[in-house]
Design a binder for these strands. Sequence first.
DNA 1: AAACAATATTTGTTACGACAAAAATATAAA
DNA 2: TTTATATTTTTGTCGTAACAAATATTGTTT
Lengths: 138, 138
Amino acid sequence: MDSKKVIITLIKINYEINIQLMTALKPYGISIQQFNVLRILRGQKGVAANLSTVQERMINKMSNTTRLIDKLIEKSFVERIICKENRRKIELFITNKGLVFLNQIDPVIDKVEEKMIGHLKNQDKEKVVSLLKQFDFS
Amino acid sequence: MDSKKVIITLIKINYEINIQLMTALKPYGISIQQFNVLRILRGQKGVAANLSTVQERMINKMSNTTRLIDKLIEKSFVERIICKENRRKIELFITNKGLVFLNQIDPVIDKVEEKMIGHLKNQDKEKVVSLLKQFDFS
DNA sequence: AAACAATATTTGTTACGACAAAAATATAAA
DNA sequence: TTTATATTTTTGTCGTAACAAATATTGTTT
């Protein structure tokens, strides 16, 4: 099989996944990127996160995290404080409002994900992941 | 296995693929999207393509094809003529310069694709594709 | 023909990714 | 201490995606 075909298939599937996720989030007025940043901040469990910490955990490392977080602050889902020990750094927290919002959305996303691949056998899901991890990006 | 893990893995792999392709194209001053439009136009083998034809064949159907093509016209890789029979339509052609350019880039992309998954067994490539096609986006 | 609907493309807006450069602060070296 | 270097975040710019609305043209109906 042509390598090109595999790549194109994967890119198309990714595109479809994105559409599904976007569509599910749309009624809630939040983008996938903002949603992911919120999830990262929730994962901190009250511990402050620096911008760089968030950035490391994001999929798109080159995105502009400052402005993504600006949007979340506008919505009062996130708070930004200047770090006392090192004033170059900032400290980011998810607010209560952000937590409530996120908890509301989680099942929506879970449902979309299950719809997309919930019918796959466990063995098949593991096979996809193991095959994808064999891709070489060195 | 968690469906979420499969989805996230796929999104991350797609991200890496994009980086590899982008990096390969960068020295040539062209984006993946522009490159793909050029390939679509080459596939026409001299037959004019309408904007809508190009759009149908693109992966990102919602992208702004008009402006993507504007960029290619600036580079003299594409020509745009208003269709005589139906002046709402436009006719798009890849130029000779565009063809030469594309032929120069093809092997570069092929090489990147081979580097990423050329080492996979034929059977494994087919397995990935067949598993990915089982995803449900209805 | 005039009005209306359908089709094809363009334009405008918002959000984000990629990336370079600037700004602010901290740390280390001379 | 002054200078240089490193770190962290912010800002600016461009390209593109998503999407709505506008425009132009054609086709259809009355």
